[in-house]
Design a binder for these strands. Sequence first.
RNA 1: GUGGCCAUAGCUCAAUAGGCAGAGCAUCUGGUUGUGGCCCAGAAGGCUGUGGGUUCAAGCCCCACUGGCCACC
Length: 386
Amino acid sequence: MFDFTTIARDLTTHARAGEFTTPHGTLLTPVFAPVGTQSTVKTLTPRDLREVGASLVLSNTYHLYLRPGTERIRNFGGLHAWMGWERPMLTDSGGFQVFSLAQMRKLDADGVTFRSHIDGSLHRFTPESAVQSQENIGADIIMCLDECAEPLDRRYNEEALGRTHAWAARCLNAKRRPDQALFGIVQGGIFNDLRVHSARTLSAMDFPGYAIGGLSVGETKEQMYQTLDHTIPELPPHRPRYLMGVGAPEDIVEGVARGIDIFDCVLPTRVARNGGLLTRQGRLNMRSARYAEDPLPVEVGCDCYTCQNFSRAYLRHLFKAEEILGLHLATLHNIRFMMRLMSDIRAAILAGAYDQFRSEFLAYYQVPDQAVRHAQLESRKQKKQQ
RNA sequence: GUGGCCAUAGCUCAAUAGGCAGAGCAUCUGGUUGUGGCCCAGAAGGCUGUGGGUUCAAGCCCCACUGGCCACC
């Protein structure tokens, strides 16, 4: 169980195609996992997910711990039975919430105390409890409790890294179930020496897979890519590599070129709920007036249910009218887009032509303006802290 | 018919004592990376119902008109 086999390796990049076996099926890598934080990929049924070709879904320990509680999920036969998804699943440990809910938690050497965003109550997470919760939930792949730090803050990353490593060892030690793979998580912000140190420290612990965390959380794309360039060579080649929280289509294409096997990201589902529809040309904003009379499908040539049956004009209407169906149709398309992207990526690797695929993809895919993006993320972050 | 109140952005409303006419929603354009369908950034939008008057200066004060609401015949 949890064998990872490399089937093909690209000649000019570090891209690789592989197979990763889990108790609920074999993952063909590179693979993208849609995010179902609260044991549901928002607006989609498991049947929808199967139909668009999803093979792996991510859920979140912190959110499920708060509601409905991990023991309830265990009592219902585990996460697969609970949510009606029979294929592989992955749970994040709650480490990301150390970052995303930074105003609502207190850290110490032993663990982290969260104040619930639901009712304000206090909840203690330790490496041992995070593993216990994930054993209750029962995903195929589970994650160490880590500390996702501000990527540009060197001092903070140095300090946090010690905790992340100590916690990784404690998670490994606390783990009991043999039918779950526990992944270690490399941290270290954008600092190459910290990343190398982290990758080596965790590699020595011999995890069945390795994640790279702490990226796509405020640094630039260039900083993320160069961090990957320095981190991935330090990870054991015979284990799957998982880039957490990434990402945008262009970041996945770049991540694969650097040797990443597994991705997860809320982006396709979240932007879908705000009218952002993914195509090979880039993102279409379906709220825009320019689609009011547009009879074309979201993406010409797409085989998804949305594109096969509805016009851009109809989708725009659903968004303007705030109809629930718009969220569903947009999410369905975006996940199908991601699945087609991943299978095209895999096919290119198997054909030994990934470098060409990458340059063609990037030539056509229009990436959002990064200056605008960063300016807006900053103002959003500042508002949040007030 | 008489009296009173009201009229400001597409909508609902602000504007100290007469001193550069604003907000929310709607509209338009962006953004969202281990998720709160949340949220964030920006833009456009005004002869202040009409016509006169007072004043250096009027959304604000005065007169008439038009339209609406209320009360009383």
